[in-house]
Every structure is written in structure tokens, then in C-alpha cells.
Computed example of a mutant assay.
Amino acid sequence: MHQKSSISTRLTLALALVFPLTVMAQVKVGVTLATTGPAASLGIPERNTVALLPNEIAGQKVEYIVLDDATDTTQAVKNTRKLITEDKVDVVIGTSVTPGSLAMIDVAAESKVPMISVAASARIVDPMDDKRKWVFKTPQNDALMATALADAMKKKNYKKLGFIGFADAYGDGWLAVMKDAAQKQGIEIVAVEKYARNDTSVTGQVLKLVGAKPDAILIAGAGTPAALPQKELIARGYKGQIFQTHGAANNDFLRVCGKDCEGTMLPAGPMLVASQMPDSNPVKASAMDYVKKYEAAHGAGSISTFGGHLWDAGQLVVTAVPVALKTGAKPGTPEFRAALRDAIENVKNLPVSHGVFNMSPTDHAGFDDRARVIVKVDGGKWVYQPGL
């Protein structure tokens, strides 16, 4: 009996030596997205994109755990806590909108788990502090996009601007950066209105905007709710130029807005019009790589800039995991999460679908002017505007 036990023990040890990977912890990526609720048109293509990310990185298995937060800030926080405390994830990606992402920061920081937001506001990563050192984001800073808009407005000789935006952190952030960008170009903001993401009417706000007689109006909304003010402005006979933010850069917005979108201009990531850009553009190849993968899975014309933000978050993880593993830290440990945070912060010259990442200790967004273009809705399609 003793001899059989000894043989069994030796066999177990031998198998452990031959198949060491079977006992290694895998990298866990937690994802919380707004796949239902007002921002579902953002969250659904983001969720679809998770399925395109690799299941193995540097010989290490990767598990993605995806939760729906229904565009609800409280649920986004609950999901983040669950992913960290119960699922023991090494990194959190999400959420789709600014209010939820801002609320998630405290959870990520106190748990010392890196977080990559796919929401736009610069407030998610700025000002840098002990909490935000754990937080990164992939959409272009709204300030970067506001500058592009102000430049285009100046070229069009617009002097007076009206503004209507979400009555939350997204709209407030855009108002702040647009005021600054407009002032630098000598553009006066003559009227400011707000509305909620789930409002069904903005007639009162639009009447006030039209009454101020601006040359152009900027709508600071995201997803399909951005169409509501646009349609009302057209219905009320507004003849000036309508601008949107990059939060409206998806096909669902075009579908809901219909013919009322024609002529609208907005800043967007290069991915939206990648096929229209010259081959010399430094982002075209990496953007087209994602476009081809997504459309192969979901059909021609199905691409969304929001899915691109999730793809870019995935590329940060793909790039950072091998670096973190080289430290000797094991997935599932505080040491690995810290090493992963450090690796993301040091990503340099990484072309993705929306730009080229150059992260640093003071910049956790990492994009420059290569991450933006101006597009126009023409014939129900996004058309690249190289002169703006």
C-alpha cells in the first residue's frame, strides 16, 4: 500500500511538471457597459467588440466577464465592486458613459485595480491624483474635440454659438471646454440650454436657442438621445449650422435622426471614416484592422466609434499584459494589478482604431491631434472633411 501511495505521489508531481500551465491563474478582465438604457447604442457595439479580443495573451489565458449596468450610475458602481471583490479581475473596462465612469473611480482606486474607461470626459483622468493614477480612458478628451470644432467654426466664419447639452457630467464637461475653445477663436456663446438623456421633448429649450439667433448650435449629447434636439431644431425652422460632439458618431444616431441629420458636422475618431483617409494617415491601417474584424462579424456598415473605444481599451490590455508578466507577478495578485497599471501608463506609440496612444504619468488619455477628424453627414453617411 505504501509503495502504491508513493508511486501515486510521484505521478502527481510528474504531471504537475509536465503540464504547469494548467495550474496557472488566468488574466481576468472585468467589463461593465451600458448595453441597455439610454446609452444602449454605445454599449451594444462595445459588448460586441469584447468577443473580438484575444482569449490568450503571451501564452496566458484571458477571461472576459461582461456585465450590463443599464446606463445607471449606481449599477455601474455595483458591477465594478462585484467584478473586483467576487470575480477577482485584474483590470476593469467601462463604463460607456461619463457619470458612471466618474463614480467607478473610487472603487478602482481603493481596490488598486486599473480601470480603463470608454467614456469621453477629461474629468475621468484629469486632474491627475492618487485616485486617478489607477484610471485610464480611450475616447478622445472632449477638450481635444472642442478645439477641432472651434477651428472649424472659425473657418466657416461663425461668430455666435448656441449650446444644448446633457444635464449631467458629459454636458457640463463639454460646456466648459467649448467655452474655452470658442473664446480663443473669438466666438461668443449666446445661449445655453440643458436636457436629460431620457427626455422626450426639448421644445422649450430649442425655442430659446432659436430666439438667440446663433450662427451655429452645438448639441452635446451622446448616442440616440443626441437626435432629439437636432430633430426639434429642424422642426422649428432653424437654418444655421448644427454641430454634434463625437458622442453622436454612430449609425443609430443617423437612423433615429434620419433626414434631419443632413449637413450636421462633428469631430470624430479617424476610425469612423478610415476607408476615406489617405494611406499615409498614421491611424488608417490600425483603424481598418478593427473595422474589418467587426464588419466580418456583424455585417458591412455595422461599425461604431464606440466599439472602437472598447477595442482600443483591449489593445492597451494586450500590450500591457506581457510587460506585467515579465515582472514575475502572477495574475490575480495585487502585484500583478500594480504591474499592469504601470505597464499601461508606459504604453508608447501604439496605433489603435482612434489614434496613437502615448501614455504618461500625467496623461492617461494619451491621444494627440491624430485622434480627430471633422466629418459631415451627407446622404445619410459620414463623410470625411479634410479641409476642416
Rank of each mutant, 00 (worst) to 15 (best):
S96K: 01
P38R: 07
T245H: 05
A34H: 06
M277A: 05
E188M: 07
L144A: 10
A235S: 14
A313Q: 10
G223P: 04
T49W: 01
P139C: 05
L233Y: 06
T95Y: 00
D106R: 14
G307R: 08
K4G: 00
A320R: 06
Y294F: 15
K155W: 02
V375N: 09
G204N: 14
K156T: 03
R123P: 00
Q205C: 03
R197E: 06
K239P: 09
N349T: 12
N358C: 06
A176Y: 06
R370V: 11
E110T: 14
F357Q: 09
P214A: 09
L340V: 07
N251C: 00
D199G: 11
D168R: 05
Y290V: 09
P139T: 09
I242M: 12
Q276G: 01
Y238M: 06
A148D: 08
V321H: 09
L149I: 15
K348Y: 02
M104G: 08
A285W: 04
A119T: 06
Y64G: 02
A181S: 11
A313M: 09
L83C: 01
D199C: 03
V113H: 07
A103C: 10
T85D: 15
R337N: 09
K131S: 14
I303F: 15
D378E: 15
D368A: 09
Q3W: 12
T203A: 13
A181L: 07
A167P: 02
D180M: 03
P114S: 12
E56P: 07
G380E: 06
P225Y: 05
G173H: 08
D312G: 05
L316K: 03
K28Q: 12
G211E: 02
L207N: 14
A119C: 05
P225N: 11
T200R: 14
I93C: 03
V373M: 07
A122I: 10
F243R: 12
L254T: 08
A324N: 11
G314Q: 08
P45G: 09
V125Q: 03
A324T: 14
K112Y: 08
A227R: 05
K194Q: 10
T200E: 13
Q140N: 14
N141Q: 13
A274D: 05
G379L: 04
T147N: 12
S6T: 15
D312M: 02
